[in-house]
Write a protein that binds this DNA or RNA. Structure first.
Lengths: 224, 224
DNA sequence: CCGGATCCGAATCGATACTG
DNA sequence: CAGTATCGATTCGGATCCGG
């Protein structure tokens, strides 16, 4: 089952053959968050047929993008190789580019823990992250704890329960907790100010000073 | 013919739906070189079926990535929108990433003027381009004139004849002219030195001081 | 020649069922 | 948990055809 060739000898074409088959880059997206078991991937990609998931995992391994790692206790996980992890800036750039074409969510569109994690990463502005922020964001059933410190963003999945190999839960309480939905994109794009977002019900502050949402809006932004 | 949805509401997914369908990103690659007519694209992508080319052009227009522009005299060209042109760094990064997975060319693999142009762009190191270089590279039937000046790379297609909207042919003669083939990747990767490349017949100097190939090898490099 | 549209067989994908 | 197997639906590929 060699990937269908485009008949060109070129690095761009090679990359396209390796990672742009249907579903492949979404598998990479989820693995950029952390190692995942077959079942984790299946749940994070609810609409992927299992045979396609199998096929892509096999192809990505053959391409040296991911690796199959038996777990200490039991089971196994898939994880990116160093080579695969080099796709991170590309996937994040694609996310920023695609952000501007997101319309309303279509019927049945889901937000998963991994997609939201990567969405935060795409919108994060390390250059502006001189001060710190510790918050918890909730979108539907997904809850993430995110902390910015030392110019770096760390995201930990609170709900649904993270895979066993996930990061450890932070101690203590976040400064800010809020619930939101798809319309948060208008805060990220700058079309809404934080106070407008709260007034219009796009964001609901669950805990903490609403002023902290200003800091969030500074730190997570994608502009045209 | 709405693109098949991945059922996720996320910028990365949106981008993937917009540009990773089969052939779409290769069309973008060629349009990054310049506006192209339907027939130019067809020739630059010899293995694309015409119905797929039509379909992709339509979808990319609907996605706001490309635009259909009637030509002054006659005919029409497709060109990237500003939004589409923002894919350039992403496509170039993908090319650098994929470069390291290029093996030997497979039977029937072609090198087109546009693919070679973009390959030069992916390998070009603007940070090292303080001095200038004016050279002509030949790979099979493809000949390009490339000039580095002011830290910028300009590539003009000499053969096969460029589309009418292409850049103007440079006046004067290049300092260096050489012919090469797929194995030039070993010069780009640093696995071969310029003198080794010449000795082993990977590069054939057609004109100019062979020392100028050192400069080429400095300016065009992709390392692991 | 340009810019496609149409037709049809081949390959891939999607949904579901099933298994070690 | 980690996949195969099966089979209909969809897309792709290759060729031909068509109007300007």
């Amino acid at each position: 089952m060699a990937a269908r060739s485009y008949g060109q000898y070129c690095g761009i074409t090679t990359a396209i053959e390796l990672v742009t088959e249907r579903w492949a880059l979404l598998i990479v997206r989820d693995l950029l968050v952390g190692p995942r078991r077959y079942t984790d991937l299946k749940q994070g990609l609810p609409k992927i047929p299992t045979n396609i998931l199998s096929a892509r995992l096999k192809e990505l391994q053959e391409g040296g993008v991911i690796r199959r790692v038996p777990l200490a206790r039991c089971g196994l996980v898939y994880e990116l190789t160093d080579y695969g992890r080099e796709l991170e800036p590309i996937v994040l750039s694609l996310g920023r580019w695609g952000f501007r074409s997101m319309g309303e969510p279509r019927e049945g569109d889901a937000v998963t823990a991994d997609s939201l994690t990567m969405a935060l990463r795409t919108a994060f502005r390390p250059d502006l992250a001189s001060s710190s922020l510790d918050f918890q964001i909730q979108v539907g059933p997904v809850e993430l704890r995110a902390r910015i410190a030392g110019g770096e963003l760390t995201v930990v999945q609170i709900a649904p329960p993270a895979p066993p190999v996930g990061g450890s839960l932070p101690t203590g309480e976040p400064e800010l907790r809020f619930a939101t939905g798809p319309d948060i994109r208008h805060l990220i794009s700058g079309k809404l100010t934080p106070s407008e977002a709260v007034e219009q019900g796009v964001v609901t502050i669950l805990k903490g000073n609403p002023k902290l949402l200003d800091r969030f809006a500074e730190l997570f932004r994608i502009e045209a």
